[in-house]
Amino acid sequence: MAYLEGTNLVAAYGVVPILHECSVEVEKGELAVIVGPNGAGKSTVMRVLLGMLEATAGEVKLDGQDISMLSTQERISQGLAFVPQNKNVFPSMTVEENLEMGGFLRLDDINKTIEEVYSLFPILYEKRKQLAEELSGGQRQQVAFGRAMMTQPSVMLLDEPTAGVSPIVMDEIFSNILDVRNAGMAVLMVEQNAQQALNIADKGYVLVSGRNEHTGTGSELINDPEVRKKFLGG
């Protein structure tokens, strides 16, 4: 039994079915990656895990507890954190205020966690008084990441963290993600850059039309000739 489990999830937007009995799971200290073509339901899996979209069947378990009936906010306070793909910062607030808002639910002193975020992303300390909208794409991604870390989560869900950034920044973001994993968090990430993501992943899911098509370790999937041919461009 893994730390976070989504089992046989079924979900739809209105009458359009998106997920058909799709299952994902991730262990603490593990990086799992969901890849697949556009419209496969990758982001929907995340929304269902977070309770932003209601599943019509299936269940979500965190540390053995069924959290399917909890609201998004309750799941956040249970240890889930999410970095959306777009609009993942508060643009007209400063970097520091963004981090403070990340720790909104916490009643203890959040300054120590803010320090930790600054030591992970030193550039954010320099820019702490600047508005998030004034930052570059990569820096904004770091703010988004830092905001999510403010709840001291045990699971980090990332929706295409490298969308729209340069290859150099992508490497930087991936190395940040590995740092987070090595610190003992469970990381589940949806990625368009399938090849690079599977390279660093402990576990990978290939989703097609809302179904698990292939599952395996990162290297298994990369070396699977069928996955290579269909999803990784040969």
Partner: peptide
């Protein structure tokens, strides 16, 4: 104030405010 900042956050990006646990 924390409440005032939460209001600005909600105004700025409602979905992210909800994800941050703002009621």
């Amino acid at each position: 104030t924390k409440t005032g900042k939460a209001m600005r956050a909600y105004s700025d990006n409602t979905e992210l405010a909800l994800l941050s646990g703002i009621d």
